[in-house]
Amino acid sequence: MFDQLRQRFFTEAGRNKPARVEPLLPSQVGELNLNWTSHFNTPALREHIEEFSGLSLRVSGHSDYIIGDNWRRRREIGQITETRTRYQRLLLVDQLVAEFARRNYKLVILGHDEQNDHQEFYTDAGFEQLERIVYYEKSDMRILPLAEFPPVSMETYRHTPAQVNDLLAVDNAAFPWLWWNSQAELNFYQAQEGVTIYLAYRKMPDGTRQPVGYFGFTLYDRWAHLDRLAVVPGLQGQRVGAYQLGYAIGLMERRGAQRVTLSTQLNNTRSQALYEGFGFHRVKSLEYSLVGKWLHSPSAG
């Protein structure tokens, strides 16, 4: 006779186990059951734990674990990247958050899958939505000619010390604290395959030049994703962004892109107006939330 598959194996295993949490050491990675959906394989996780020492924990004697690191290589923002546990999530998350706090992190953010897979758990644990990220797509490469060009010139980013300083200065001036790029993130980003970065400079009356913006995009197979578009605060609304965007799309098209995508924050209405003016349309199905928990007062940022 037919027999139903048994659900109880999963739902009950591990309940009521007495648990003690300890740091996960690189040498213990082989003892874990890294399952199919893990971001890591054994050597990758070992390397990860060596890089972010003390930010991954496990339940002593069991294969329940939590993996933490720095969010976008920011030293003051932690990330919960992955948990694998049946009943000890609360314990593991509490301990990792405490560890981040001990290290003076200001904020902990959830990795994308972690947030999707355990939404209710994290809501109960006091995590909240920090940003809503909206997604835009432009399915052609047409741009309208700009009526008036701002007096800026574009320069390829070549990773010189001067450019690095300029870019980080623009970045931190243009974006809110949460979205600042760290130097480590910038180094990581510019080394990725298909990435192009340009800096925008304005000529000053005294002959010097001042960095006023930058953009970066990644070229994929016949499409490009605009990762960053920045304009320093004093010049926003003066078409510096529009100029850069037109410039970027032109570059992308020359390199074979047939469509462009990007994402921005829901509350950044000015940037949305710019993109919509360029023929971008919102793709609601790809929107998501950034969820996290402040460890100190948000004003500390």
Binding site: R6, R8, F9, E12, A13, G14, R15
Partner: peptide, 20 residues
């Protein structure tokens, strides 16, 4: 069912590969 078994509300319970 295992919780109910612990509480004495069930006299027998299939438990599978659980912590019990």
């Amino acid at each position: 069912s295992t919780v109910l078994y612990d509480q004495g509300k069930l006299d027998l319970a299939g438990v599978g590969a659980s912590a019990e």
